[in-house]
Simulated assay, not measured.
Amino acid sequence: MEITTLILLLLVPLLVWRIYSRLKTLMGRNPSQLWRHYAYGLLPLLLVGLLAARLVDTPIALLALAAGAAAGAALAFRGFKRSRLENTLQGFFYTQDLRTGVVISMLFIGRLMHRAFELYLQMHDHIPLPPEMFHQMPLTTGLFGLLAVYYGAYHLLLARWRRTQKPVSALKQFDLPPL
């Protein structure tokens, strides 16, 4: 192995730790905004639909995408139940289930890093790149379906919760007895 490959391998744990710490801060307490929930809910589902349309010729990848999407929807319901939802005087807030969100995100990011390292080694050894496209690999499409549908369904569930809530008034906040 050459020195550049070794340096790349040594930098991978640092990169993983940095991505993990960034995800952890992003999944903290966030303000709930309806437009953001709808945008984050519909865009990933639209991307899954577009990818499914491109994968009609490769049924194994399409099946992996559907399986990942089903698992993502189930995990979104589970993650929503474990989320902390707040209706305060300052507004609406939510705190996502950290374990589920980080694990799903890191699985997909790990797959991207693995695939990028494979491509780097193939280009380094002057091996021609495989004819199959990145999006046609069943593992990649399955993990993308898992990630996209998880976040899409989760934010649509947050939008549903938010629409059913009424803002808290100052008197209700302190539960004062009537005079």
Rank of each mutant, 00 (worst) to 15 (best):
E2S: 14
T4I: 13
T4P: 00
T5V: 10
T5C: 00
L6E: 09
L6S: 09
L9Y: 11
V12I: 15
V12N: 07
V12Y: 09
L14E: 06
L15W: 08
V16W: 01
V16G: 04
R18A: 15
I19Q: 08
R22Y: 15
L23C: 04
T25S: 13
T25Y: 03
L26F: 12
M27S: 10
S32E: 06
Q33N: 09
L34F: 07
W35L: 12
Y40Q: 15
Y40D: 07
L42G: 10
L42M: 12
L42V: 15
L42K: 04
L46I: 11
L47M: 14
V48I: 12
L50I: 10
A52G: 14
R54Y: 12
L55R: 07
L55G: 06
D57C: 00
I60N: 08
I60D: 14
A61L: 02
L62S: 10
L63W: 07
A64M: 08
A64D: 03
A67S: 11
G68Y: 06
A70Q: 08
A70I: 15
A71V: 14
G72W: 05
A73C: 12
A74V: 13
A74R: 10
L75I: 07
L75Q: 11
A76Q: 08
A76T: 07
G79K: 09
G79M: 07
F80W: 10
K81D: 14
S83D: 02
R84L: 13
L85I: 10
E86M: 09
N87G: 06
N87S: 14
T88G: 10
L89S: 03
Q96E: 07
R99D: 11
T100N: 03
T100W: 03
V102Y: 05
I104Q: 05
I104K: 01
M106Y: 01
L107P: 07
I109Q: 06
R115A: 11
E118G: 00
L119V: 10
L121G: 09
L121Y: 03
Q122A: 12
Q122V: 00
Q122S: 13
H126V: 00
H126A: 03
L129W: 01
L129K: 02
P130W: 05
P131D: 10
E132T: 03
M133S: 13
Q136A: 07
M137E: 12
P138G: 02
G142I: 04
G145Q: 05
G145D: 03
L146H: 04
L147D: 02
A148E: 11
V149M: 14
Y151A: 05
A153M: 14
L156N: 01
L158W: 00
A159V: 04
R160C: 05
W161T: 03
R162C: 01
R163C: 00
T164S: 13
Q165P: 01
K166F: 11
P167S: 04
V168W: 05
V168G: 01
S169D: 11
Q173W: 11
F174R: 13
D175E: 13
P177F: 09
L179F: 00
